[in-house]
Simulated assay, not measured.
Amino acid sequence: MFFEHTGPYALPTDYTPRRPEHFYVRRIVLAKGARTTQERRNYIAKIIALYPEAEIIEKPDTPHNRIAPNHKNLASRLRLGKQTLVFGEHKSAVRFSNEASNICPNYWHFSPYGFCFYGCTYCYLSGTRTFVFSPAVKVFVNLDEILEAIDRQAYKQGRVCAFYLGKLQDGLALDPLCGTSRVLAPFFAAHPFARMTLLTKSADVDNLLDLDHQGHTILSWSVNPPEIHDRFERNVPHPEQRLQAMQRCAKAGYPVRAVLMPIIPVEGWEEIYGRFLRELLLSVPLQRLTIGGICTYPDAKRLMEESIGEDNLISQSIHSTTMCQADHRARFSKELRIKLYGALLDAAREVRPDLDVALCLEEEEVLNKVGLSASQGRCNCPF
């Protein structure tokens, strides 16, 4: 295997951490495994030094997934969790997704981090079982073990395959603090089989630009028009900043993708999305575009309604029968989704007729009705 020839990839202990924008840390929890080696202690100490105002809590016998804010109210737990930084270890950080009853091709994903400090009101992640119980921003310091697990699984596949970073976290938001990309990109660049697909809303790409990535790291941005950002995305980099980051990474030779999701039918949505999509496609040499609507969970919907009211546009547009589908995700009505996707697909093809466009987490019937049946499996997460 790869590690037999290269040895383990360690934490980036020679990296000088920076405080990420939009992350306000009130407390730092040192969970089980955080300080079991000198390497881990040194790494964490540098980061803690950036937050002298934060409360430090030592929980050496408590696993990371048992760290929970002491609030019964879900919204209060979430607010405190997004200001809580947990260091620990994750012994099952490499997993295979198991989406059912939708067109997701399923894929390997991994977690050097957990959760996200951005404040998108429509966020589905806040409503997943893991983060309803333990909503906190997490950094896993057993990076060598995580990459060794990827190495084993990649050799078991025996072919080029993607490992996705962004299913249970933002893939880049913590990178200024942790410097993890300085290890990940070289690891995937050198590996004969493993490739990385990373999804983010971050605009801080400084760590990536000088790395020899060999095209083995695909960078993907979750984007929406400024009108949607201003209304639904709190404490998140502006879309223009994200487009600039995409341009910089494309110039550095990275394959760049975009996920336009969730499409939200605000008044004038066709013009708003058409204008933004045109700007995106003319300014960034996208390799692939994935589009999708709301596909959220009941707890996430409830959190959203606590934040922006029960009569918000997203809740009004969710069709009640979709909550009973096999994947338990709430969606807009089938008719509305087909209308949204069709309009955006036409707008994209006007500018880039050759572009790979696919749907995310959709039903096969919808995929067929918008004429994208051939795109199944050529969406964001796979290589």
Results as ranks from 00 to 15, higher is better:
Phe193Ser: 02
Gln247Met: 13
Val139Gly: 03
Gly127Asp: 05
Ile56Phe: 01
Lys72Pro: 00
Lys91Ile: 10
Ala326Phe: 05
Gly179Asn: 09
Cys360Gln: 08
Phe3Gln: 12
His71Arg: 13
Thr62Val: 15
Leu30Ser: 00
Gln247Arg: 14
Asp327Ser: 07
Asn42Ile: 12
Ala203Thr: 05
Lys301Pro: 00
Arg231Cys: 11
Tyr9Leu: 13
Arg41Cys: 11
His71Gly: 01
His213Ala: 12
Glu145Gly: 06
Arg129Tyr: 06
Trp221Glu: 06
Arg337Phe: 04
Met196Leu: 13
Lys301Ala: 09
Gln169Leu: 10
Ser126Glu: 07
Leu11Tyr: 05
Pro382Phe: 04
Cys104Gln: 07
Tyr107Asn: 06
Glu227Lys: 15
Asn380Ser: 13
Leu168Glu: 15
Lys72Met: 10
Ile57Phe: 02
Ile308Met: 14
Ala68Ser: 15
Leu11His: 03
Ser317Met: 10
Thr13Val: 15
Leu282Trp: 06
Glu306Tyr: 08
Gln214Asn: 14
Tyr24Gln: 15
Leu209Pro: 00
Gly309Lys: 09
His22Ser: 01
Ile48Gln: 04
Glu279Leu: 14
Val137Trp: 03
Asp144Lys: 12
Arg182Asn: 04
Ala154Pro: 01
Thr321Asn: 07
Val94Cys: 01
Tyr113Gln: 09
Cys116Pro: 02
Ala189Val: 08
Asn368Gln: 15
Ser320Pro: 10
Leu165Asp: 02
Leu359Arg: 07
Tyr254Val: 11
Val284Lys: 08
Pro60Cys: 11
Lys167Gln: 15
Leu367Ser: 08
Ser333Lys: 06
Leu50Asp: 02
Phe188Lys: 12
Arg257Cys: 10
Ala49Gly: 01
Arg77Cys: 03
Ala149Trp: 02
Ala75Thr: 11
Asp354Gly: 02
Phe232Ile: 12
Asp230Glu: 14
Phe2Asp: 00
Gly253Lys: 14
Thr322Met: 02
Phe2Val: 11
Phe232Ser: 06
Ile263Phe: 00
Tyr51Met: 07
Arg19Lys: 13
Lys32His: 08
Asn368Glu: 15
Pro225Gly: 09
Arg349Glu: 03
Ala245Arg: 06
Gln244Val: 10
Glu365Trp: 04
Ile272Gly: 01
Leu74Gln: 08
Gly81Pro: 03
Ala45Ser: 14
Pro225Cys: 13
Glu350Asp: 14
Tyr24Asp: 15
Arg26Pro: 01
Pro20Met: 13
Arg331Lys: 04
Ala100His: 12
Ala49Ile: 08
Cys324Met: 14
Gly88Asn: 07
Ser222Val: 12
Ala54Ser: 09
Val357Ser: 02
Thr36Met: 07
Pro226Gln: 06
Lys138Thr: 08
Ala45Leu: 09
Asp311Trp: 05
Leu74His: 06
Leu260Thr: 11
Thr130Cys: 07
Pro12Met: 14
Tyr164Trp: 06
Leu361Asn: 11
Leu198Cys: 15
Lys201Gln: 11
Lys339Asn: 08
Ala34Cys: 05
Ala245His: 02
